[in-house]
Design a protein around this nucleic acid. Structure first.
Lengths: 199, 199
DNA sequence: ACACTCAAATACCTTCGGTATCCGAGTTAA
DNA sequence: TTAACTCGGATACCGAAGGTATTTGAGTGT
């Protein structure tokens, strides 16, 4: 036993992992998957590449960790936004703000898409994981859409899952389009949602 | 002057370029942008990497050439499909078949998206070029949508450009989603189009 | 016939993901 | 207390890939 025992070994490793994930998150969101190198992540976090490989098996695993973390926050935010009280118009405005923040964020949109494509091309297991993440989004959205229709007392023009699939796809496509072409109007998503929800 | 003059030098180079583009097209569509290496393209075409760099400044330029070629075919096909005669239902069926072939083709969808993301992250000039390609799609679709509404005598629920933007984004998003998760229903796109065009 | 051009080949550079090995602080058992 | 051991992190290295510099040799103009 040391006189003044500092943090234990496991605690130090956890701290290292945290710092690596936080740094990787910043760089992956800023520069994208391919342009971000593990050397730079390690250096920016104050470690060597060895620290990265001691905490994550591959670059894919590190990036997946970052994406899971960010996505959990995004899903939570949208559920909270839509689930709130207020008139349908209020809720749509809140959702609009969320969409503007999330879909309008090129870093996030590009990273999700880039990693999904990479996973699809590279490793069936990773692709399956990414696909499951997408289905998770669809289920969450389908629930939200159904609930919203119930609140409004309107009949959905399509099954909720299909509508959710279309909305998610629209969000992905619009996010990509806006990232590539920042001059685009940001209103297409909510306009289409209005169209679908207010027949 | 040689006795039996074979192909001239310029002709030989054009032939080399053709072979390289055709080979690159096959590999890019099959494996994607990053996974396709110039060494393999050159070897598969029967040349060395030097031949590639003698005909294209960078990998980006070769890939852009391939994408332009394929996209020109796709746009032509959809304009031809929609522009044809027949009842609205017939035309929608033709479009449906086109969408199934094009959007349902993971190779094409993933390559477009992968290259767009790469260009956006890497080089502002290339990004601008890709963005212009997207606007070209939107203009073509807006014209088609407007014409279709005129033929049907219906009023569009949104401005044609915005509708076209939404449809393109939906196509991109759905194509990506289906590439990542092949089990998805392929009908969301035409369902939404029916929804928008038959109020 | 002879110098020259230039498409294509070859050799080599740098970067980056990944692996093998090493080091030394921290943990544990005697 | 101490000595063996564990293992997180550092370091050295490998192979692949985009890109560049240089060379080569078949075709071309004078």
């Amino acid at each position: 036993m040391a006189r003044e025992s500092g943090p234990t070994r496991a605690e130090r490793q956890a701290r290292t992992r945290e710092l690596l994930v936080a740094t990787a998150r910043r760089l992956f969101l800023r520069d994208g998957y391919h342009a971000t190198t593990l050397d730079r992540v390690a250096e920016a976090a104050g470690f060597s590449k060895g620290a990265v490989y001691s905490n994550f098996a591959t670059k894919d695993e590190l990036c997946q960790t970052v994406i899971d973390e960010v996505r959990a926050e995004q899903v939570g935010a949208v559920v909270e936004a839509i689930g709130g009280e207020g008139s349908p118009a209020d809720r749509l405005a809140v959702f609009d703000a969320w969409a503007e923040r999330t879909i309008g964020d090129p870093g996030w949109t590009l990273l999700e898409a880039e990693f999904a494509i990479h996973a699809t091309r590279r490793d069936p297991a990773l692709r399956a994981r990414v696909a499951e993440g997408g289905r998770h989004w669809v289920r969450a959205l389908a629930g939200l859409v159904e609930e919203e229709a119930r609140r409004r007392g309107t009949v959905l023009p399509l099954p909720p899952e299909e509508l959710a699939e279309a909305l998610l796809s629209l969000g992905i496509g619009l996010g990509l389009r806006r990232a590539v072409d920042p001059g685009l109007s940001p209103h297409a998503l909510t306009d289409v949602i209005r169209l679908v929800l207010q027949p």
